[in-house]
Design a protein around this nucleic acid. Structure first.
Length: 592
RNA sequence: GGUCCCGUGGUGCAGCGGCCUAGCAUACGUCCCUGUCAAGGACGAGAUCGCCGGUUCGAAUCCGGUCGGGACCGCCA
């Protein structure tokens, strides 16, 4: 090695020893005849000093050096003179008196500060990510991610899970997200797809008798990225043979409890994780990933105003819908604009509108107050639990639409009004999901994935008779209102799998083409098995208290998938296209 | 596909019809300086305000378009 020690390990105990350090110039303080530099590497910062009279050559070299130059420094560790120690640095007791400076490399002036925590525009950071990674904040996120990943991998390996890498080039399937595809040279016009998850492969591993599998797997989804969603994500993927839902939940809960207790900045307030049914989550919070760090639970006003003459409510109730509401404390004075904003939020979740009732003293203020009797208004107030100064927001619609709309308003207001207890993490399980949900078009879609099995034998029977009532074995892991992941016990019987796909509108013949390998495998002694996948990017993001998953990966892309560092995507050589049997018909986007 | 926000020396911000010959901090360059640690001091260089067009006597500032970035909706089994 070009060094004997790192820049983070020199201590008073090394005083008098000669050391050689290598690193980057973090800052330089030039006093004329006396020059200091802070030399930085991954491990820390060490002050290097040179005096013109004691060591003219080293002093001259330090005077010439600039930020981010790469230096190799030979010198003697010595205690700093009394009164000049720096309590802010772990190495602040000592300094290295340089005897020899070797410039390993110079650096242009960096495009942004390495030694300051200023916000810098992301595109610039990603373009110069190799400079950005030298910044303490970025480095510590990388360290956290490394440690969390390593911890989780060891956790499962120690419990008998085998880490197995699955292929990254699989068969494309129109179910789910848009695939990233890879053209094939031997089969022109045919493509592999990058996996959206190793779901079918891990099931095949279980059928193969692997018993317990774990993989920190890359997954790819070509859908518009968001703050917490990236193109190429990493998931913790596990699968266990002969497992029941509780077995998977127990081992994952043990893992995540340990991870949060070891790596989170805030205490985990929920131990053991509460297990809440999907039905209860929707009823109390209007979402299947509730943020339980604050109350303000939803209320149901359907019965309170049953029989009302007010058209909107009357029609909703008559068609089997519900009145779902939330009491916003102390916001009776909310402006028309506030209500409009809340209405817009409700509409993003499918509501057709929103009705408000503000309670000012004994008075009720509402744009629709005239449609209600005093009795009805009193019942509405009593049922909601609103007190003077509160405003009640109501959505009347099909039960789930109304619940989700109000739930989203609750979520946003919880943050805006500072109701959220941000001093702790709340982790929980949501389970007993319905196997299928109605699409707006009236057909069925699956709530987890098409391979999730029914929870009980009775639910299996419902698959044949009344699929909408069948409860799935699915369980979702939720933290602070974020979905971290989900899993299920899988269907392990061909006929049942075919039936489940049929409910989704996929015929036997079509299923045989799209899921042939899995369906065939189910006929060769497939065992009951199940597992889970959780998002590693989101896990690290939450542990680090970040609002953006791009920060957690080494080389991020922009919202349009552009990679400013590698300038990708990029055109490919015409010869390669020819070999692959491809012709480009779209004009490539021009980039500056 | 849609909605909203942003784009001003290297970086981060201010300026939002004339007072801008574009301000501040920091970085950068030269010089001074023996104990600093965000060192200090002096001097200096550096931007036609993302781009195109329009309104106006006059545009960084107003309007339209466009490009780029971000947040969100759709989408994400």
């Amino acid at each position: 090695m070009l060094r004997t020690h790192t820049c983070g390990e020199a201590r008073a105990s090394l005083a008098g020893k000669e050391v050689t350090l290598a690193g980057w110039v973090h800052t330089r303080r030039d006093h004329g005849e006396l020059t200091f530099i802070d030399l930085r590497d991954r491990y820390g910062i060490t002050q290097v000093v040179a005096h013109a009279k004691e060591n003219p050559a080293a002093h001259k070299a330090l005077g010439k050096a600039r930020n981010e130059w790469v230096l190799r420094v030979r010198g003697t560790v010595r205690a700093r003179p009394e009164g000049t120690k720096n309590a802010k640095l772990p190495t602040g007791e000592i300094e290295v008196a340089a005897s020899e400076i070797e410039v390993l490399n110079e650096s242009k002036t960096p495009p942004f500060y390495v030694n300051e925590e200023t916000e810098v525009e992301e595109t610039l950071r990603w373009k110069y990510r190799y400079v950005d990674l030298r910044r303490e904040r970025s480095r510590e996120i990388m360290r956290l991610r490394h440690e969390v990943t390593n911890f989780i991998r060891n956790f499962f390996v120690e419990r008998g899970f085998w880490e197995i890498e699955t292929t990254m080039m699989i068969r494309s399937d129109p179910t789910g997200a848009r695939d990233f595809i890879v053209p094939s040279r031997y089969y022109p016009g045919k493509f592999w797809a990058l996996p959206q998850s190793p779901q079918q492969l891990k099931q095949l591993l279980m059928i193969g008798g692997i018993d317990k599998y774990v993989q920190i797997a890359r997954i790819f989804r070509d859908e518009d990225p968001r703050a917490d969603r990236i193109y190429e994500a990493t998931q913790l993927d596990i699968e266990m043979t002969f497992a029941e839902p509780g077995d998977v939940m127990d081992v994952v809960e043990a893992c995540y409890t340990a991870v949060f207790e070891r790596f989170a900045k805030k205490p985990l307030r929920t131990k053991p994780f509460p297990r809440m049914t999907y039905e209860e989550a929707i009823r109390r919070y209007g979402t299947d990933r509730p943020d339980t760090r604050f109350a303000m639970e939803l209320v149901d006003l359907t019965d309170a105003v049953r029989g009302t003459g007010f058209g909107v409510f009357k029609d909703a109730i008559a068609s089997g819908g519900a009145l779902r509401a939330v009491v916003v404390p102390g916001r009776a004075a909310a402006s028309r604009k506030d209500v409009d904003t809340w209405t817009a939020v409700a509409k993003t979740r499918g509501a057709k509108g929103l009705v408000s009732f503000a309670f000012v003293g004994a008075e009720v203020r509402s744009p629709v107050a005239k449609f209600f009797s005093a009795d009805e208004l009193a019942r509405l107030r009593q049922t909601s639990g609103a007190t003077a100064g509160d405003i009640v927001l109501v959505v009347a619609d099909e039960y789930r639409v109304a619940s989700r709309s109000i739930g989203e308003i609750r979520r946003q207001l919880g943050q805006e009004l500072g109701l959220v207890d941000a001093s702790a993490h709340h982790m929980m399980w949501i389970h007993r999901f319905p196997m299928f949900e109605r699409t707006p078009e009236g057909t069925w879609t699956f709530s987890h994935n098409p391979f999730a099995g029914p929870l009980t034998a009775d639910d299996a029977k419902l698959l044949e008779t009344d699929p909408g009532k069948a409860i799935s074995s699915q369980y979702d892991l939720v933290v602070d209102g974020n979905e971290l992941g989900g899993g299920s016990i899988r269907i392990f019987n061909r006929a049942m799998q075919e039936r489940a796909l049929e409910v989704l509108g996929i015929s036997k013949d079509e299923a045989a083409v799209r899921f042939g390998a899995l369906l065939d495998a189910l006929e060769y002694g497939a065992p009951p098995e199940g597992g889970i996948a959780t998002g590693m990017d989101r896990t690290v993001m939450i542990l680090a208290g970040l609002s953006n998953a791009r920060e957690t990966i080494a080389f991020p892309k922009t919202q349009t998938g552009y990679d400013p560092l590698l300038d990708a995507p990029a055109p490919v050589d015409a010869k390669l296209l020819e070999e692959l049997g491809l012709r480009v018909i779209a004009k490539p986007e021009k980039r500056p």
